[in-house]
Design a protein around this nucleic acid. Structure first.
Lengths: 363, 363
DNA sequence: GGGTGTTATGTTTACGTAAACATCTGATGG
DNA sequence: CCATCAGATGTTTACGTAAACATAACACCC
């Protein structure tokens, strides 16, 4: 019974173990399909990959066999053979920020359209060590390319440990000299915001900045300063938060006590939200007493009290361009680096108005 | 010059092409390391996988060779050999909801701790077709197991196309009979919220529900109704939104006009935000005139105007349990299904207070 | 001092796929 | 009627790893 193939059990050496029978019930291989269809496995491969040069009749038989066995190409074998994983790794420092998430989503969608999967490489704390860890984990990972979202001044050396053939594109950072970068036009957005407030008649604009370590925060702050300077206005001291609404609230309590602060440009919407709360608590009306502008245009911004005027970032476009960039570099060889800027749009809602001084004289 | 190895170029048949020399500059293989270290590739494998039974001296040599060549194990080959990808696929219907994202993040972190990577399977529109598409794409993908975040009544048949050995765990859904489910204790959270409002003295509680298709929304609504009924209170008509702040605002305009509406339980924080805006616009003070409770406890909830009392969901725990569950099923065979509930915590902030009627008599 | 382990290492093989090469069939053309 | 060719299909091999199976060296014990 158990030597069904006719070879005597005791035959010396010849009794090759019947592994096949015991094998895991996993999916069928090309060989299985080939056997059932009565063709060679190579023909199955040709059908599977849509090559021409297979007779219509044969093709149909193979397809039928595939269906019957529930054949699925084994991506590990395919990857081993081709040297490609068809997967893009994405390194993020936390998914707490809306921007990161929206970008990630767009990356996943774009990648899927190109037939690529997206693997997530979460980095808990954005320290050098952690980042280097992610990169080295990644290099053992089934990934053809990497997209890094945000804050890449930490990458300086970490990159060294990357396999040389892996392409890297960075979203939302500078370092255009060392990497291919896709970024929102932070400066342009910030300038528009400041200009809008000046145009409304505000004498100057205060800035509720993001954390010092962040390049995005830094660039928004720089642009704010530049725009004020260009207009010959005085530049108030920077107030700093950490992107969170809570930090915006704390900073806002201070700003509320500045009597001549009539306009604030917050570096993101969350901090603007906290700022709104602080101002409300201190009895300073927005926009009548103080105008507020945010950055990002998160989904909830239109429902703040009052609805927030803000700078809309096109995260979807950033994500799309990241994928495009990384695939381009993979296919056409990693050429020189550079930065692609995605423009922002300015969304005017109800949190901005002329300053009290400009309106008081009228009635 | 070009036949440097000494075999005459014209040698018939024997001139096996020198492929090695032309090979891609990709990373070194075990064989390369073995050659350099002067051992067999099996020994390299043993070192690479941390097996015992390798002499300390040999191990050091191998490690040195690995370092010199920058050796990285090829995960495709490893996966092919072992039949495991060490990757978990995550299917989400959009990353727009905070809950999904936080759960995803926790999944990624937990998976990483277990040495698993996470691959994202975005489904643009949650239709049967789309879901089925994701599942079939997935089955060609390098994935050992799948975690589905949210709304799985769409999966009924789609599952059929899944390779049999792939384990599935579902977050935030019902279907505990067909799948292994990890879910927040929606009912418990909702009841606590309603009870809190009743205890404050409100006669009854209105409900701003999520979309009908959502099981989470449905369960929150059911629990709200059950709690009111249990307390013998009348059950107001359900007002429905679509989770967005904007929909909460629209629904809120209607609620603001209900004179005897003194307490609203919103099915999520975003809608609560919109509701707050609507009430503010209509001059109904929160919490003096109307109490509002949300659900989720998103990061910004503490900065709303007023800071929102809400039901805190432990998304991190949900994510962790999903990974744990899926790994358990992989290792110990997919046993029976069931639902694991993660408790909520109730966060009291400033959006709830006794109803006007209860307070007015006093002063 | 010949078994008997034990430890360190090498050799063979298979995983599933697909490129490269080989073969086989039948048709076309001179 | 055979050379030539194109199309369809089969055979061999390699991808990098690791399990399974040798083998070799050396220590230990009665």
């Amino acid at each position: 019974m158990d030597t069904a193939d006719g070879i005597a059990a005791g035959a010396p050496g010849g009794a090759r173990p019947r592994k096949r029978a015991v094998r895991r019930a996993q999916s069928a291989s090309m060989a299985d399909v080939a056997r059932l269809a009565g063709v060679s496995s190579q023909t199955v491969s040709r059908v599977s990959n849509g090559y021409s040069g297979v007779a219509e009749e044969t093709r149909r038989q193979v397809l039928a066999a595939m269906k019957e066995l529930g054949y699925r190409p084994n991506s590990a074998a395919r990857a081993l053979k081709s040297g490609e994983f068809r997967t893009i790794g994405v390194i993020t420092f936390g998914l707490s920020s809306t921007g990161n998430v929206r970008t990630l989503e767009a990356i996943a969608v774009s990648a899927a359209q190109e037939g690529y999967a997206v693997t997530l490489l979460p980095v808990a704390v954005p320290t050098q060590d952690e980042v280097r860890g992610a990169f080295s984990r990644l290099s053992e990972l089934a990934v053809d390319a990497v997209i890094v979202i945000q804050e890449v001044h930490l990458l300086d050396e970490a990159t060294l440990s990357l396999p040389p053939h892996i392409q890297v594109v960075v979203a939302d950072s500078d370092a255009g000299d060392r990497f291919t970068v896709v970024d929102t036009d932070q400066a342009g957005g910030a300038r528009t915001a400041v200009r809008h407030l000046l145009d409304l008649g505000h004498h100057t604009v205060w800035h509720l900045a993001g954390p010092e370590e962040s390049y995005a925060a830094q660039r928004r702050a720089d642009a704010w300063r530049a725009e004020l300077t260009a207009a010959g206005r005085e530049v108030p001291a920077v107030v700093r938060g950490d992107w969170s609404a809570e930090s915006g609230y704390r900073a806002g309590l201070g700003l509320a006590d500045e009597p001549d602060c009539t306009a604030v440009f917050a570096a993101n919407d969350q901090m603007a939200l906290g700022l709104l709360r602080a101002l409300a608590e201190r009895g300073r009306k927005v926009p009548d007493d103080v105008s507020v502008i945010g950055f990002d245009d998160i989904a909830e911004a239109g429902s703040f009290l009052p609805p927030l005027t803000t700078v809309h970032q096109d995260f979807a476009e950033v994500g799309r361009l990241c994928v495009e960039g990384v695939l381009h570099r993979m296919r056409h060889g990693g050429a020189e680096h550079g930065t692609t800027l995605v423009p922002t749009t300015f969304v005017v809602r109800e949190s901005t108005a002329p300053p009290p001084a400009a309106r008081r004289p009228r009635p």
